[in-house]
């Protein structure tokens, strides 16, 4: 059974719909799946999640959660939906405990009823249960917000950029929790601008300017990358990227952590045989441009590389 079905959703803002936030989006998510919407700021992630959370109306298209229409059946939908907005949206002047029991009461349940579900998260919050939510760290706030969104055991959980503003350790813990939630049969739709978080989802859709560029498992996305990719480093990274972009074989070049990622024009097919020659040529080209400390490696493409490639292809 499909828990989320989205068909040709369109949403624009501004006078006469000048700004198109979502441009005919379609996808579906299986029950119990952890589905990621990956895209940079302004891609349309929040608009999409708000439409699914019944908070804004789409201009066109249909969307169903658990077979309930997001516009027509919004009242019934709201009781089986868990939604965590991108901005921290709990009461800062209430304590952890008070926030939790308030949201439990709002959904007509009690903390004890679904304690099993939030236990793993809540034990970490328990030492601070009398602390005001506003005084918690970023990671703790996110965990509390997740608890509040889960307190009524929702069938579908919508999380808008839960990793933003959270330290890497807390973020990892947060994702571990999402993995565990899947075992309860909860369908999770999570949006994130962090490409590395894509790897933690069952399937992802790459969203850019309101359109889906690609949709697959993270591995499937990576495998679809069809160009040779190199990681290059030298003493002067800024000049290195400029020079690499002018290299005749270069398709694109961009900074990627400590390296510059260089994609080539030619196809990946049959490239392995010429790889050494190409690398030697590259080395020579860079030396002729007086680069020092040169390092050239074959790189395995990540989701980010795929994202950059598909935005460039368009």
């Amino acid at each position: 059974m499909q828990a989320i079905v989205v068909e040709q959703i369109t949403k624009s803002y501004g006078p006469k719909g000048a700004v198109k936030a979502l441009d005919g989006i379609s996808f579906s998510v299986d029950k119990g799946e952890l589905f990621g919407i990956i895209g940079p700021d302004g891609a349309g992630k929040t608009s999409l999640l708000r439409i699914l959370a019944t908070l804004i109306l789409p201009d066109a298209g249909e969307a169903y959660l658990q077979d309930l229409h997001v516009v027509r059946d919004y009242k019934r939908l709201r009781s089986l939906l868990g939604y965590m907005p991108g901005r921290f949206s709990l009461y800062q002047d209430l304590s952890v405990q008070e926030n939790l029991s308030f949201f439990a009461a709002v959904f007509g349940t009690r903390i004890e009823d679904n304690y099993e579900l939030i236990k793993d998260i809540y034990v970490q919050l328990e030492p601070f249960k009398n602390r005001r939510a506003g005084a918690l760290s970023g990671g703790m706030k996110q965990k509390l917000a997740l608890c509040c969104a889960l307190i009524h055991k929702p069938e579908v959980l919508l999380l808008d950029e839960p990793g933003t503003g959270v330290d890497p350790v807390s973020r990892k813990e947060f994702w571990d929790m999402l993995q565990r939630l899947k075992s309860w049969g909860i369908t999770i739709l999570v949006s994130t601008p962090n490409m590395d978080e894509a790897e933690l989802c069952d399937r992802v859709a790459l969203l850019h300017n309101g359109r889906i560029l690609a949709m697959d498992t993270p591995a499937g996305i990576r495998d679809s990358y069809d160009r040779p990719l190199f990681a290059v480093r030298s003493a002067d990274m800024y000049r290195l990227i400029q020079d690499l972009r002018h290299w005749p074989g270069a398709y694109s070049c961009y900074a990627f952590g400590e390296y510059a990622h260089l994609a080539l024009h030619q196809s990946l097919q049959g490239f392995d045989k010429q790889a050494d020659t190409v690398m030697a040529e590259l080395q020579q080209y860079l030396e002729s441009h007086h680069h020092t400390g040169i390092e050239v490696l074959r790189a395995a493409p990540g989701v980010e590389d795929c994202f950059i490639a598909s935005t460039k292809d368009r």
Partner: peptide, 13 residues
Amino acid sequence: ELGTMEVLLASPL
């Protein structure tokens, strides 16, 4: 302003 209305609206209240 604080965004809590968003959560309240998405609830069965």
